[in-house]
Nucleic acid binder design. Structure first.
Length: 570
RNA sequence: GGGCCUGUAGCUCAAUGGUCAGAGCAGGGCGCUCAUAACGCCUUGGUUGGGGGUUCGAGUCCCUCCGGGCCUACCA
């Protein structure tokens, strides 16, 4: 038994996430957490909403609400949807929590003591009409390079040229359209990441088993240009962790907050405190403090590729630079993007299927299975309705669901709704059990390695073995001449349902639970030995014939959804 | 512009430099009748994006061209 800390990249508070966001972090993290729990490991699986920053302020303003109220509402919405997808967080926290505020400020002090914070006075664009400083991309104007009239202050979307807001012709605020902009001096704190460059590089180099996607992005940032750059960790905003506070080793930071990417990863730690404060646990330090037991913890993070620089460099810089005994991540599993029907999912343009909509049309297991079995691990992947329909119908309805139907209904018709007695395993059964044992071991290895797609493929192959067995054993033929043998074959078939339900739990928890309930085998443990597990349901054990576990997606449904989700989100 | 990833069967994807490039789905044939017209068996299908090179041997390594994607530090 080992102890595993698992975190999923924390979703931004601004709106409901789409399926691409889900498959890139929360869903595979949940798969891994569920698997490890099923294997009897001690797991702490944490996620939260990332609530600070300019987009949250603007979204709240647009909704006509105070930002704190907006975030509280959206947190509840996201928590409900996460629950709908059966994401088994031990706690779903908030980066705006008091715990995170205190911890973020504490980290800043520690970093300052270590000489890793420097003050920088710089000039930023200020919008008089909006009464706020504006990030570069919140300023638009005409591109000096190509003449595009909606170029952003950081880059022109038309000609891709890198820009500075002061390069723009006729710059205006994206928020209000106001052209009353001026450069104002402002002071910010910078984290001296450059001072930690060698230490970070050595650490990254030691991680030879990480996905290429993870290490290549990290190395790029470490080595690009002049190497790892210092990063501003404060912003001129109101919504965030105040950068001026009692005990702060600097002055003049009133009205400023820490940058979201500084406080968001710290929420991983604060979330464990929230977990304890919510009465769900009693000791968070044994998960996070290496001086208090966390040395034994294996820490795995899941995220989309856009989050990699912050998790491989910025956050580790915060941890290492603090000189405090915090647990560093052991493995970073990163994902590419999921595209939608020939283009990108887009939150801003409402393109694709969003988490709430997905749950409105189908149960979570359908989405979990398709998304995980098509997880964008080696490259970007593509969602199409045709592929979704075909995969789900074949894998879930035909291969697994129909297997359950055929054996339970056969048994009911011939022996009644109890596990039949008689007969002993022969050559055919031992061959099956051996094949299952081999595939089970492969499945366990793939799950432990976080090879999501391959694990899904192995699980499916395990389901297929049941159909192959039934087909060749043919109890419906056997029963005509040898009742005992037919009973034995049927008994094994029923045990396969229980076996499959246990193995399938991480992918399709609802269906697995339904099957275990039907087989009256709730709480069945992970099989230590396939042969033993496949004899667990003894003669006389009652069961119920399950309702159709997975209904098929009809062509009309698919076409309807295809049309419905083609355009903008209504 | 720079960097990284990627291109393999109609589709979605595999393949430590080493048998004849493999699976699933789709297509074709046969079988079965317990089952959600489900299942099983067999099978068609490839100049591995193009071109060069290294090597006894290249999908894999190098160069180049073409296509797709991501990142490029003030969105998060």
């Amino acid at each position: 038994m080992a102890r595993h800390l698992i975190t999923s990249a924390i979703p931004y508070i601004n709106g409901i996430k789409h399926l691409g966001n889900l498959v890139g972090s929360q869903l595979p993290a949940d798969l891994y957490a569920r698997y490890l729990r099923a294997r009897g490991h001690e797991v702490l699986f944490l996620c939260a909403t990332d609530e600070h920053g300019t987009p949250a302020e603007l979204a709240a303003a647009k909704a006509g609400k105070p930002v704190a109220e907006y975030c509280a509402e959206m947190h509840a919405v996201q928590a409900r949807i996460a629950d709908g997808f059966r994401l088994s967080f031990d706690h779903f926290g908030r980066s705006s929590s008091p715990q995170n505020r205190a911890l973020t400020q504490s980290f800043a002090v520690a970093l300052a003591k270590a000489g890793l914070i420097r003050e920088v006075t710089e000039k930023q664009m200020y919008s008089v009409a909006d009464a706020r400083f504006l990030p570069d991309r919140y300023i638009e104007g005409t591109c000096p390079n190509c003449g595009f009239d909606s170029a952003r202050g950081d880059q022109c979307d038309n000609c891709t040229k890198q820009l500075d807001p002061t390069d723009l012709i006729n710059p205006r605020s994206v928020i209000s359209g106001s052209t009353d902009l001026e450069l104002r001096e402002t002071k910010h704190l910078y984290l001296r990441q450059s001072a930690l460059k060698d230490e970070l590089a050595a650490w990254i180099d030691s991680k030879s088993d990480w996905p290429i996607l993870t290490t290549s992005i990290a190395k790029k940032w470490l080595n690009d240009g002049d190497g790892l750059q210092d990063r501003g960790i404060t912003r001129d905003l109101h919504w965030g962790v105040p950068a001026q506070f009692e005990g702060a080793p600097w002055t003049g930071m009133e009205g400023k907050v820490f940058y979201v990417w500084f406080d968001a990863p710290i929420e991983y730690i604060a979330c464990a405190q929230e977990w304890v404060d919510a009465g769900k646990g009693d000791d968070w330090e044994r998960w996070w403090r290496t001086d208090k037991g966390a040395d034994d913890v294996t820490y795995t993070q899941f995220m989309g590729k856009d989050n990699v620089p912050f998790h491989t460099l910025s956050f580790p810089a915060t941890i290492l630079g603090s000189n405090e005994p915090w647990k560093l991540v052991d493995y970073i599993k990163s994902f590419n993007y999921l595209n939608y029907d020939g283009g990108q999912f887009s939150t801003s343009r409402g393109r694709g299927v969003f988490m709430d909509q997905a749950l409105e049309i189908l149960p979570p297991d359908y989405w979990r299975w398709w998304l995980l079995s098509h997880a964008p691990e080696t490259s970007d992947a593509e969602f199409t309705w045709e592929n979704f329909q075909a995969s789900v119908n074949k894998d879930l309805a035909d291969v697994l669901g129909n297997f359950v139907s055929r054996i339970t209904k056969f048994c009911r018709a011939k022996f009644g709704e109890t596990v039949p007695d008689g007969g002993v395993w022969g050559e055919q059964e031992l061959t099956l059990v051996n094949a299952l044992a081999t595939r089970l071991a492969a499945y366990e290895t793939l799950m432990a390695d976080k090879e999501v797609r391959k694990a899904a493929g192995e699980l499916r192959a395990i389901w297929v073995l049941g159909n192959e067995y039934l087909q060749s054993a043919a109890p419906w033929t056997t029963i005509k001449t040898d009742t005992d043998r037919a009973a034995m074959q049927t008994r094994l078939g029923l045990n396969l349902i229980r076996f499959y339900a246990v193995l399938s739990q991480p992918f399709i928890p609802d269906a697995a639970a339904e099957l275990l309930t039907a087989m009256r085998a709730e709480g069945a443990p992970w099989p230590e030995d396939a042969g033993v597990a496949l004899a667990a349901l003894a003669p006389g054990h009652g069961f119920a014939v399950p309702e159709v576990t997975f209904a098929k997606i009809a062509d009309e449904q698919r076409e309807d959804w295809q049309t419905r989700f083609a355009g903008l989100r209504g």
